[in-house]
């Protein structure tokens, strides 16, 4: 089936996103597998009008929500060591530090902000696609993104003399 080929072509994107969310490759691939199984089972509900990507990400995100809920109850421990590949070439110490800071900051973002930011900034989803995948209105998504970016900026200590105007949102 043509749709299955399209889904297969999106596996690398799903894996990267899952990896960024979970910070553990095995867990990420498990999540992707869950998502694919669910997608195949739900294929008849897919409308087939080209919105496959947000549809798939939506399934993945729903699975991730379920997973986080279960792990919270089980007293899930977040791995402290680095599972994400370091930049291949020896970057300067500063760049390394900045990346580490960003990585730590991403992990400290509230889950909904993290999902939104990674969809847009990492996966390059458009606002329409991301709003669809997260099942929230575009306006909500935009302010969630602005909040995520501003917390990221604060946490990485790069909020210099020209600090941004506060967003008046919790």
């Amino acid at each position: 089936m043509a749709v299955l080929n399209e889904i297969e072509a999106l596996i690398p994107d799903l894996r990267r996103y899952a990896c960024a969310l979970l910070r553990d490759r095995t867990a990420a691939d498990d999540l992707v597998q869950d998502c694919l199984e669910r997608a195949v089972a739900k294929l008849h509900t897919y409308s087939g009008d080209g919105a496959l990507r947000p549809w798939l990400f939506r399934i993945l995100i729903n699975r991730h929500r379920d997973l986080m809920r279960r792990d919270q109850r089980a007293g899930h421990l977040v791995p402290v060591d680095d599972l994400v590949t370091e930049p291949a070439n020896a970057a300067t110490q500063d760049a390394h530090m900045a990346l580490r800071e960003t990585k730590a900051a991403i992990d400290r973002l509230p889950e909904d902000q993290r999902r939104a930011l990674l969809l847009v900034a990492l996966e390059g989803a458009t606002i329409d696609e991301a709003a669809q995948a997260l099942d929230i209105p575009k306006g909500t998504l935009l302010s969630r993104l602005a909040r995520a970016r501003s917390s990221l900026r604060q946490m990485t200590g790069r909020e210099g003399a020209s600090s941004p105007r506060p967003l008046h949102k919790s």
Binding site: P12, D13, R15, R16, C19, A20, V84, T85, P87, A98, L99, T102, K103, I106, L117, L118, A121, L122, R149, L152, R153
Partner: peptide
């Protein structure tokens, strides 16, 4: 920020 995120989680 976008560049950093993309560096942290490379294309797979």
């Amino acid at each position: 920020q976008n560049e950093q995120l993309q560096a942290l989680f490379p294309d797979m």
